[in-house]
Design a protein around this nucleic acid. Structure first.
Ligand SMILES: NC(=O)c1ccc[n+]([C@@H]2O[C@H](COP(=O)([O-])OP(=O)(O)OC[C@H]3O[C@@H](n4cnc5c(N)ncnc54)[C@H](O)[C@@H]3O)[C@@H](O)[C@H]2O)c1
Ligand SMILES: NC(=O)c1ccc[n+]([C@@H]2O[C@H](COP(=O)([O-])OP(=O)(O)OC[C@H]3O[C@@H](n4cnc5c(N)ncnc54)[C@H](O)[C@@H]3O)[C@@H](O)[C@H]2O)c1
Lengths: 210, 210
DNA sequence: ATGATATTGTGAAAGGCATCACGACTTTAG
DNA sequence: CTAAAGTCGTGATGCCTTTCACAATATCAT
């Protein structure tokens, strides 16, 4: 994999850069400097230059970066022309919100199906995304290799095991459960309760702008 | 502030430890080792011991940690007996989900009021949390110093300015907008689109278990 | 053309964090 | 009481990331 040398921290910032470049492009802006970018995305300009430099010399000294060129470059790098299909498991409060949003605006990702255990929900659709019964998971998944997990936390490991058996590649886990997966499956945790508690903790213990 | 020496990475894990210790305590478990903790929360055991060591010697060699003692310690450290009131701005897809959930389960935080610009939503309540009109923000906020921001991204800076003028201390920002605040205000970004894109990027470019 | 100005790309330094590895100490079993 | 097993706390190490700071290079105005 040729991009293996790119630091993970850099990789996480790429979609952010892409989004802002896109917006600049729509505004008809032709050039941009690392300093302008820095103010907009709140990342130190040296970090931005370093990030870009992993991909080679994308800018011109004394000029900055050509928006269109940079955008095209990132489009390829981020596979923006390739659509990744995603399944959502658990159409509750959070799952419903995600289905309505569906990450279409600036993304190469799309939720194409959802699952729930509640017969009141299955058989319907939200924003065009069909909701199937969880019993039909294996039968319906097709080629989908990425899942968003928004089930109650006691169900999380259960569902995870089924996803793992099915051959899932990545899970975005919104439940507080710290799920166990066979190696080779990537899990990203987004634990919203912890995010809120961490904010509160930092407010109390790391005052001012530390 | 006496806990200023605690690394931020450690601070972010504290709520996770607390939650699991709480659950152990409910199960009646009296002792726990860094290795058991490690398996449950998926953090290296050395990291756990190091994290705990910032607070002094909390364990006993050859024995492990006393669950009740540790829990009591973290309860104080995390101010679990103190309730932090939070306001939510923007009762849409995401905001509604948060209001239903309300972070009550294991938390010292509570959403006590919400704001929206849509007259259809104001005047009602969700899960007991009243929804006020955004025009009444300053009038209603009272002592609330933490806000969750779930408005459309074009409104984000606007609302942020008002919150800043009012004297907000911290903002949990779910909009993709990179908001600007006066120094002294803490903003945590949770950019769900980016999280999903990052997962997909890692799947494609950082294969297997790297 | 030329000098003033702008901005990149990057070596080097610093910071922050995770992990190893082991001595010290406690418990447990016999 | 003694030996074996278990576990912590932490010095040392190395990795990853950010940031500084500046030479190199390009643009721009005249
Ligand atoms: N809503 C929030 O704001 C919020 C915040 C933080 C964390 N979370 C976490 O996100 C997860 C979902 O939260 P929520 O508020 O949407 O919960 P919810 O109860 O509203 O939704 C859960 C959904 O999962 C479905 N479900 C239950 N068992 C299932 C199974 N075996 N297979 C498929 N579907 C099943 C339920 O029918 C329900 O529709 C929970 O783990 C929660 O702790 C939610
Ligand atoms: N829903 C998701 O899954 C999701 C995912 C990623 C990011 N986001 C981001 O989260 C934010 C909210 O998303 P959503 O799907 O809930 O949007 P939404 O449109 O459903 O909700 C926005 C709410 O804000 C209200 N609002 C508009 N202007 C306001 C103002 N000036 N003051 C107060 N309230 C105002 C609207 O009336 C609406 O109720 C957006 O910025 C979106 O980009 C949402």
């Amino acid at each position: 994999m040729d991009q293996n040398k790119i630091p993970q921290a850099t990789a996480k910032r790429l979609p952010l850069y892409y989004r802002f470049l896109n917006s600049l492009n729509h505004q008809g802006k032709k050039r941009v400097s690392s300093n302008e970018l820095s103010e907009a995305v709140k990342v130190d300009s040296a970090t931005i230059r370093r990030d870009f430099s992993y991909f080679g010399a994308l800018g011109k000294k004394g000029y900055g970066y050509n928006v269109e060129y940079l955008l095209g470059f990132f489009r390829k790098t981020l596979d923006q022309d390739e659509l990744t299909e995603v399944a959502l498991i658990g159409v509750g409060n959070l799952g419903t919100a995600f289905l309505h949003y569906n990450f279409l605006k600036n993304n190469n990702t799309k939720i194409v199906m959802a699952f729930d255990a509640d017969p009141e929900k299955t058989g319907t659709d939200i924003g065009g995304v069909p909701i199937y019964h969880i019993d039909d998971l294996e039968e319906r998944m097709g080629n989908v290799r990425v899942a968003i997990l928004t089930v109650p936390s006691d169900e999380a490991q259960n569902i995870t095991n089924r996803l793992a058996d099915y051959g899932i590649a990545g899970i975005l886990n919104f439940t507080p459960a710290r799920i166990t997966v066979p190696s080779g499956i990537r899990v990203h945790h987004i634990d919203l309760s912890i995010e809120l508690q961490a904010l509160v903790y930092f407010l109390k213990h790391y005052p001012l702008d530390g």
